[in-house]
Each structure stands twice: as structure tokens, then as C-alpha cells.
């Protein structure tokens, strides 16, 4: 029996499937509790439904991208393990890197079914689990204290009796600023790849990610214009997914030029 047949055996599917099912149930429980709590504290049900619809439509396209990650890893690690990793805890851009690095660490020349052994697989699987579990570990030990500190009302006294600065209203601005910082880092990296990845300021690197980002931005601008001019608030629920779809379609055509 080949290693891939062993890694794709029904019992491995069963182990991974049980964990995925457990996490799906956790999501349902958290969603139902949040919805009920929102109703109980008098939140607008329409707003909660809009958030659910927007999140569901938003998630479809990135999920298809994540599915590609499963397919990419399934050639060397079988299908059930990458399916579990990318459904639970893992991240598309981390998993492939960690799997590659883990394969090298256990002495394989690279991540491929040709060199894979059962022992190498279980070691890689353990390494993948441990490397990316720290977010959960921090949540376990410090999330309550951390969110408690963040949500302490401005102007109140802290545990040592110091009065906090009155910065009510800055929290939202800080969150938006943090997100702007995050987006700027990624856009800057696309520019860096284009300008210098093949030699400093040679402008011979791939321009596709930068072009796709620009098309996504242009599509979003059109959606925002429609929303503002036609007073169509519903556009918000689909604007990100729509912009991504347009940008990804553009990537197919732009990819041929590159």
C-alpha cells in the first residue's frame, strides 16, 4: 500500500472529520449564543442578519482559495490532514511554509509523496500542530485579562488607583488605523516584489499581485460610488466579495500578459 493510500484511508478521514465536525459545532454554538445575547440586550435583529449575510458572502471566495491549499498539500500529505489543518487553526499562507520547513527538519529533501514515510508524516503533523497553536494557548491563559483591560471604560481608575486618560472615541480610530497599517504592509510588499525582487529597483519582478490589488481597489471604488449615490446600503454586504471576484477575474487575463 503506497503512503498516499495510507494517508487517504477512511480511518484517517474519520479522525480528521471528527475534529472538523467538533469545530463546526463550536461555531454554531458561539453564533447562536451571540445572536440570542444580541436580541436580549436589544440589538437590531436586521443589523445582526446583515452581518451574517455579509460574512457568508465575503467568506466564499477566500474559502475556494483555501481549498486550493488543501489540493496543493494533498499531493504530499494526503487529503484528510490538510483538510483538517485548513478548516481548523491553520492558515493558507502558513501551512505550506510550515509543512515545507517541517519536511526539511525531519530530513526529507522536500515535501513530496516520493520521499514521504509514515514516521515523517506523523512528525510533520505534530510539528504543524505545535507551531501554530500559540494563539489558542494565549487565549486560554490571558484573553479574559487582556479583553478586560481593553474594555475598561475611559476615565475610570485602574487597579493601582491611577486615573486613565480620557480617550473615549479613540478606540475606533485606533482599530481603523491598525487595519490601515496591515493593508499598507501588504500593498507595500506587492510594490517591493515588483520593484526589487529581481534586483534592486530593476522593476522586473511580477507585477500581477500589484495589478490585481489595483483592480480590486478600482472595483471597490465603483461599489462605494453606487452605494453613496443611490443610497444603496445593501451594496456593502456584497462589495468586498464582488470586488474580489472582479479582481480575480482580471488576474486570469492579466496573467496572460505577464
Amino acid at each position: 500500500m503506497s503512503i498516499l493510500s495510507q494517508l487517504n484511508s477512511p480511518v484517517i478521514y474519520l479522525i480528521c472529520g471528527c475534529i472538523v465536525l467538533f469545530v463546526a459545532l463550536v461555531c454554531v454554538v458561539f453564533a447562536v449564543r451571540a445572536y440570542r445575547a444580541g436580541k436580549a440586550i436589544g440589538m437590531d435583529v436586521t443589523k445582526m442578519k446583515r452581518a451574517i449575510v455579509a460574512s457568508a458572502t465575503f467568506a466564499v471566495l477566500p474559502s475556494v482559495g483555501i481549498l486550493l491549499g488543501v489540493i496543493a498539500l494533498s499531493g504530499s500529505l494526503g487529503t484528510p490532514w490538510p483538510w483538517l489543518r485548513l478548516s481548523v487553526i491553520g492558515a493558507l499562507h502558513y501551512e505550506t511554509q510550515v509543512a515545507e520547513a517541517a519536511a526539511e527538519a525531519v530530513g526529507l529533501p522536500g515535501l513530496s509523496a516520493t520521499h514521504m514515510t509514515a514516521e515523517a508524516f506523523t512528525t510533520i503533523a505534530l510539528l504543524m500542530s505545535v507551531c501554530i497553536m500559540w494563539g489558542m494557548v494565549f487565549c486560554l491563559f490571558s484573553l479574559k485579562a487582556y479583553t478586560g483591560r481593553l474594555n475598561r471604560p475611559a476615565g475610570t481608575k485602574d487597579s493601582v488607583g491611577k486615573k486613565k486618560n480620557s480617550l473615549s472615541g479613540f478606540g475606533d480610530i485606533a482599530m481603523t488605523a491598525m487595519f490601515i497599517g496591515l493593508v499598507s504592509a501588504y500593498i507595500g510588499s506587492y510594490l517591493g516584489i515588483f520593484a526589487s525582487s529581481q534586483g534592486l529597483f530593476s522593476f522586473r519582478g511580477t507585477w500581477l499581485p500589484l495589478a490585481v490589488a489595483l483592480v480590486g481597489a478600482a472595483a471597490m471604488w465603483v461599489f462605494l460610488q453606487i452605494r453613496d449615490r443611490r443610497q444603496a446600503a445593501w451594496v456593502d454586504s456584497f462589495s468586498i466579495a464582488g470586488s474580489m471576484l472582479i479582481a480575480m477575474t482580471a488576474a486570469i487575463f492579466l496573467g496572460r500578459l505577464g
Binding site: 471566495l61 477566500p62 475556494v64 482559495g65 481549498l67 486550493l68 489540493i71 499562507h93 481603523t176 487595519f179 490601515i180 493593508v183 499598507s184 501588504y186 500593498i187 506587492y190 500581477l208 499581485p209 500589484l210 490585481v212 490589488a213 489595483l214 483592480v215 480590486g216 481597489a217 478600482a218 472595483a219 471597490m220 471604488w221 462605494l224 462589495s239 468586498i240 470586488s243 474580489m244 479582481a247 480575480m248 477575474t249 488576474a251 486570469i252 492579466l254 496573467g255
Partner: peptide, 27 residues
């Protein structure tokens, strides 16, 4: 999903996402 025609689309999910988000938040 792995057809070479569609590959550039799925390789660029994140740039497509951040391009759209950049427009929304830079504005």
C-alpha cells in the same frame, strides 16, 4: 481548480482582498 487558466485567479486571492480593503479604508 488547478487548470492553468484559473490558477492566476486563485494565486491572487489575498491581493484582490487587500486591494478592495485598501480602497475602502484609505478613502
Amino acid at each position: 481548480l488547478q487548470s492553468p487558466v484559473l490558477l492566476p485567479a486563485f494565486d491572487n486571492v489575498v491581493p484582490a482582498l487587500f486591494g478592495a480593503m485598501a480602497c475602502k479604508y484609505y478613502r
